[in-house]
Nucleic acid binder design. Structure first.
Lengths: 143, 143
DNA sequence: GTGCTTGCAAATCGTTTGCAATAGC
DNA sequence: GCTATTGCAAACGATTTGCAAGCAC
């Protein structure tokens, strides 16, 4: 299901490839850690010194619009991105800030809620917040 | 279930009342439209000219921490707030920007996903995005 | 060469912070 | 009087915008 390349992932979603777009997509596909635009920029910039943050933002918006990535608003501080567009939930650890993928029992999210007639759903998301296993085991006071 | 007063809603959640806190809580309880901090400030400021935006932010953070309100990160532009803390989902219309409440079929959200062992969930949210009935019926090109 | 893409710098805007003034017990 | 709360102004930081230069077909 994930046996595709950055290039194919772009073209299959109708995104014209460029060196910058390939780099962003490749980073997203290799780092399923839900990076923010800034993280992606900082990671790619050393190897691609002419890359600008604007281009990273432009590319991420384009990928989201074309369905090649999804944008997560789970962290109120900044939007982050995920190249895995299959249905799954996300868990934000409020101690370490990491976002974890969580499998769903039922992949038809719309069935969870009573969406009123006439409403057309285009995206859906399930977000959890709490303390992850690693942070909990390190037994902080507040954990 | 909603037959309480702003004052009681504060004290029941361990929040010491003040004129400003009461005003914010009252606004939230009377306007279940998921306002942002700025909307609340702009709405209250005319009648309470000394109210500062800082206090609105402080109060909203306090209410959220104490469980007297929930904060929604459905709109990536700004956080918004809801005094209805009972389990329900939210639908953001991407045309008009309105956030709608959506009842859930199953109120135990945690059962929807396979949270790994050791993870402790503190908050959960289901967000939908799309086009609401009103915007859809106004038949815009992109709708 | 026409149109899309990139990148820099500046602007924008939601939110937070530092700190002094104020209010409530 | 002591502590918590408020409010102003400034800082901050993520994201967007304007626009000129570059690239591709």
């Amino acid at each position: 299901m994930e046996a595709t390349t950055p290039l194919r992932n772009l073209t299959d979603h109708g995104v014209k490839p460029s060196a910058q777009r390939l780099a962003v997509m490749e980073y997203l596909m290799e780092h399923l850690t839900h990076p923010s635009a800034d993280e992606i920029y900082c990671a790619l910039h050393p190897a691609m010194p002419t890359l600008s943050k604007t281009t990273v933002y432009n590319t991420l918006r384009l990928l989201t619009e074309k369905g090649a990535a999804i944008q997560l608003t789970i962290d109120e501080r900044n939007v982050c991105f995920d190249a895995d567009t299959t249905p799954h939930a996300h868990f934000l650890c409020t101690r370490c800030g990491k976002v974890y993928d969580v499998p769903l029992r039922e992949t038809n999210l719309e069935r969870q809620a009573c969406i009123p007639p006439g409403f057309r759903t285009e995206q859906e998301a399930i977000y959890y917040r709490g303390c992850c296993a690693r942070c909990a085991s390190q037994g902080q006071a507040d954990c």
